[in-house]
Amino acid sequence: MTLNDKNQKPASETFEKKTGVAHLFAAGQYSMQGFRRLMQESAFRHELLALGVGLVLFAVIGASLGEFLGFIVLMAILFSVEALNTAIEELVDRISPEISTVGRNAKDLGSFAVFCLLVANGLYAAYVVIFRIFIA
Protein backbone atom coordinates (compact mmCIF):
# COMPACT_ATOMS: atom_id res chain seq x y z
CA MET A 1 0.00 0.00 0.00
CA THR A 2 1.44 3.35 -1.08
CA LEU A 3 0.33 6.60 0.48
CA ASN A 4 1.23 10.14 -0.53
CA ASP A 5 1.54 11.21 3.07
CA LYS A 6 3.39 8.88 5.46
CA ASN A 7 1.21 10.07 8.37
CA GLN A 8 -2.04 9.46 6.54
CA LYS A 9 -3.84 6.23 7.36
CA PRO A 10 -5.90 4.34 4.79
CA ALA A 11 -9.62 5.03 4.98
CA SER A 12 -10.29 1.48 6.18
CA GLU A 13 -8.24 2.16 9.34
CA THR A 14 -9.71 5.59 10.16
CA PHE A 15 -13.37 5.21 9.19
CA GLU A 16 -15.80 3.45 11.49
CA LYS A 17 -19.12 2.54 9.87
CA LYS A 18 -22.04 3.74 11.99
CA THR A 19 -25.23 1.73 12.33
CA GLY A 20 -28.68 2.26 13.79
CA VAL A 21 -29.46 5.61 15.40
CA ALA A 22 -25.78 6.59 15.31
CA HIS A 23 -25.92 6.29 11.52
CA LEU A 24 -28.88 8.68 11.43
CA PHE A 25 -26.99 11.30 13.45
CA ALA A 26 -23.82 10.79 11.39
CA ALA A 27 -25.78 11.25 8.16
CA GLY A 28 -27.22 14.49 9.51
CA GLN A 29 -23.73 15.67 10.39
CA TYR A 30 -22.42 14.80 6.91
CA SER A 31 -25.32 16.70 5.35
CA MET A 32 -24.56 19.78 7.45
CA GLN A 33 -20.89 19.58 6.43
CA GLY A 34 -22.03 19.48 2.80
CA PHE A 35 -24.32 22.47 3.37
CA ARG A 36 -21.47 24.44 4.95
CA ARG A 37 -19.25 23.59 1.98
CA LEU A 38 -21.98 24.61 -0.46
CA MET A 39 -22.42 27.93 1.36
CA GLN A 40 -18.90 28.80 0.14
CA GLU A 41 -20.23 28.83 -3.45
CA SER A 42 -21.57 32.21 -4.58
CA ALA A 43 -23.98 30.50 -7.02
CA PHE A 44 -25.61 28.64 -4.13
CA ARG A 45 -25.88 31.81 -2.06
CA HIS A 46 -27.60 33.48 -5.02
CA GLU A 47 -29.98 30.54 -5.26
CA LEU A 48 -30.79 30.84 -1.55
CA LEU A 49 -31.51 34.53 -2.12
CA ALA A 50 -33.77 33.59 -5.04
CA LEU A 51 -35.64 31.19 -2.73
CA GLY A 52 -36.25 33.98 -0.22
CA VAL A 53 -37.29 36.50 -2.87
CA GLY A 54 -39.54 33.92 -4.52
CA LEU A 55 -41.27 33.05 -1.27
CA VAL A 56 -41.92 36.71 -0.50
CA LEU A 57 -43.16 37.31 -4.06
CA PHE A 58 -45.46 34.29 -3.90
CA ALA A 59 -46.86 35.54 -0.57
CA VAL A 60 -47.48 39.04 -1.99
CA ILE A 61 -49.36 37.75 -5.04
CA GLY A 62 -51.39 35.27 -2.96
CA ALA A 63 -50.04 32.04 -4.43
CA SER A 64 -51.77 28.85 -3.38
CA LEU A 65 -50.24 26.28 -1.07
CA GLY A 66 -49.70 23.99 -4.06
CA GLU A 67 -47.86 26.74 -5.93
CA PHE A 68 -45.65 27.36 -2.89
CA LEU A 69 -44.97 23.65 -2.62
CA GLY A 70 -44.10 23.39 -6.32
CA PHE A 71 -41.64 26.28 -5.98
CA ILE A 72 -40.02 24.83 -2.86
CA VAL A 73 -39.65 21.38 -4.46
CA LEU A 74 -38.09 22.87 -7.60
CA MET A 75 -35.69 24.90 -5.46
CA ALA A 76 -34.77 21.80 -3.42
CA ILE A 77 -34.00 19.96 -6.66
CA LEU A 78 -31.92 22.94 -7.80
CA PHE A 79 -29.97 22.90 -4.52
CA SER A 80 -29.38 19.16 -4.93
CA VAL A 81 -28.09 19.54 -8.47
CA GLU A 82 -25.92 22.50 -7.42
CA ALA A 83 -24.41 20.29 -4.70
CA LEU A 84 -23.75 17.50 -7.21
CA ASN A 85 -22.22 20.00 -9.64
CA THR A 86 -19.92 21.29 -6.90
CA ALA A 87 -18.97 17.70 -6.04
CA ILE A 88 -18.12 17.05 -9.70
CA GLU A 89 -15.97 20.17 -9.81
CA GLU A 90 -14.18 19.19 -6.59
CA LEU A 91 -13.45 15.69 -7.88
CA VAL A 92 -12.28 16.87 -11.30
CA ASP A 93 -9.98 19.45 -9.71
CA ARG A 94 -8.57 16.77 -7.37
CA ILE A 95 -8.15 14.01 -9.92
CA SER A 96 -7.15 16.09 -12.91
CA PRO A 97 -5.78 19.51 -11.87
CA GLU A 98 -4.38 20.04 -15.37
CA ILE A 99 -6.69 21.23 -18.15
CA SER A 100 -8.27 18.23 -19.87
CA THR A 101 -11.12 17.74 -22.30
CA VAL A 102 -12.74 15.09 -20.10
CA GLY A 103 -12.54 17.31 -17.01
CA ARG A 104 -13.90 20.31 -18.89
CA ASN A 105 -16.77 18.20 -20.28
CA ALA A 106 -17.66 16.89 -16.81
CA LYS A 107 -17.78 20.40 -15.40
CA ASP A 108 -19.75 21.72 -18.39
CA LEU A 109 -22.32 18.93 -18.07
CA GLY A 110 -22.81 19.70 -14.38
CA SER A 111 -23.18 23.37 -15.19
CA PHE A 112 -25.75 22.56 -17.88
CA ALA A 113 -27.81 20.53 -15.38
CA VAL A 114 -27.88 23.53 -13.03
CA PHE A 115 -28.81 25.83 -15.93
CA CYS A 116 -31.75 23.59 -16.89
CA LEU A 117 -33.14 23.78 -13.37
CA LEU A 118 -32.62 27.54 -13.21
CA VAL A 119 -34.69 27.85 -16.38
CA ALA A 120 -37.37 25.49 -15.02
CA ASN A 121 -37.57 27.45 -11.75
CA GLY A 122 -37.70 30.77 -13.59
CA LEU A 123 -40.44 29.57 -15.95
CA TYR A 124 -42.47 28.15 -13.07
CA ALA A 125 -42.18 31.34 -11.02
CA ALA A 126 -43.05 33.48 -14.05
CA TYR A 127 -46.08 31.29 -14.78
CA VAL A 128 -47.37 31.56 -11.21
CA VAL A 129 -46.83 35.33 -11.05
CA ILE A 130 -48.43 35.98 -14.46
CA PHE A 131 -51.35 33.66 -13.70
CA ARG A 132 -52.00 35.24 -10.29
CA ILE A 133 -51.70 38.85 -11.48
CA PHE A 134 -53.42 38.71 -14.87
CA ILE A 135 -55.66 35.65 -14.93
CA ALA A 136 -56.83 34.69 -11.45
Rank of each mutant, 00 (worst) to 15 (best):
M32F: 06
V114D: 02
G110V: 03
S100T: 07
V129Y: 02
E98A: 15
V60N: 02
V56Y: 09
D5Y: 08
E47H: 06
Q40T: 08
F112V: 07
A11K: 14
V60T: 08
A43C: 01
M39A: 12
A27M: 08
A59L: 05
A126K: 15
Y124D: 04
L38C: 07
R36C: 04
A136L: 13
H23C: 05
R45C: 02
A26S: 11
I72N: 03
V92D: 06
A106T: 02
Q33L: 15
Q33G: 03
T14V: 10
V56I: 09
I130W: 01
V129T: 10
I130A: 12
C116H: 04
Y127L: 09
S111W: 00
Y127A: 07
T101C: 12
G62D: 14
N7K: 14
L48A: 03
L65Y: 13
A83S: 07
M39F: 01
A87Y: 09
I135K: 05
M1L: 14
A63H: 01
N7Y: 12
E13S: 12
P97E: 02
V53C: 13
G62K: 05
V81S: 00
E98Q: 11
R104T: 14
D108A: 12
Q8P: 00
N4C: 01
A59K: 11
V119D: 04
S100G: 14
I61R: 00
L123R: 09
Q8C: 15
G70Y: 08
V129D: 00
R37Q: 08
F131A: 15
S80Q: 06
G110H: 01
H23Q: 12
V102G: 09
N7M: 08
D5L: 06
V129N: 00
H23K: 07
A11P: 01
G54M: 03
A106L: 15
V129F: 02
N121R: 15
G62E: 12
I99F: 13
T2I: 10
S31Q: 12
N4D: 13
N4A: 06
L91S: 03
A136Y: 06
P97K: 12
V21I: 11
A76V: 07
F25C: 03
A126C: 07
E90H: 10
T19H: 10
G52C: 14
P10I: 12
G122E: 05
A136F: 03
F115M: 09
F71G: 06
E13R: 04
G70Q: 06
F35N: 07
Y127R: 10
E89F: 04
S31E: 07
F131S: 05
G20Q: 00
G20D: 08
F71V: 03
I95A: 05
Y30F: 12
E82T: 08
I130K: 01
K107A: 03
K9V: 13
A87L: 11
R132V: 04
F15W: 11
F15M: 06
